[in-house]
Design a protein around this nucleic acid. Structure first.
Length: 188
DNA sequence: CTTAGGATCGCCT
DNA sequence: GGCGATCCTAAGC
């Protein structure tokens, strides 16, 4: 069984899905925008939460593709991932930044800041802006409150090493929309 | 502009 | 008991 949502086959390797997600619009309860930055993670790679096998926290990452994996970072920030490959594999894509499009006022209220580029330019920030929490862990991306739609035009891709990790730092598994000012950090 | 430190929860050693 | 797929603030150059 294939899991294709918004034209993306989530049973593909996470690097491919991470690249294809750039330009895709994601809404949570009607609030969201275009994905401009992602990172891929996979089972046999020490920076991934799935590297050490299934656990209570990463269970959703070993669930079916096309579903959400949400975890708490540093006891403070929620982070949103999209599960890839087949159930049991343990691959995913971290959504790192979004260009705000819909429900921008709600984002401002939740974030407590005004500037558009400060609303969703980081994995923790965008979860706060879209009100993503543990309640979304394991939910399908093909149903409410999620709503994904494909890019409306051509996408210029940028890539580079992942951010904020100490292992497998050499893998160029961070992807972004070239030239976007809504990314968490510029690409080289 | 760059860097250092603190906040604060749950998992893993 | 240590340490993170983070973010914000304050201080240093």
């Amino acid at each position: 069984m294939k899991s294709v949502i918004a034209g993306i086959d989530f049973s593909a390797p996470s690097q491919e899905v991470a690249a294809q997600l750039i330009g895709v619009t994601v809404l949570v309860d009607g609030v969201g925008g275009r994905i401009v930055e992602t990172e891929a993670y996979d089972r046999d790679e020490p920076a991934s939460h799935s590297f050490t096998g299934p656990s209570a926290r990463n269970m959703a990452m070993f669930g079916p593709p096309g579903h959400a994996y949400v975890y708490l970072s540093h006891g403070i920030h929620w982070c949103l991932n999209f599960v890839c490959r087949e159930a049991g594999h343990g691959a995913g894509v971290l959504i790192r930044a979004i260009e705000p499009v819909a429900g921008v006022d709600a984002m401002r209220a939740r974030r407590g800041v005004d500037e558009a580029r400060m609303l969703c330019s980081g994995p923790g920030k965008l979860c706060q802006a879209l009100a993503v929490t543990r309640a979304h862990n394991g939910l399908s991306l093909a149903a409410q409150p999620f709503e994904l739609s494909p890019p409306t035009g051509p996408v210029l891709l940028a890539s580079g090493p992942r951010i904020g990790i100490s292992k497998a730092v050499d893998l160029p598994w961070r992807f972004g929309l070239a030239g976007s000012r809504f990314v968490s950090r510029p690409f080289r």
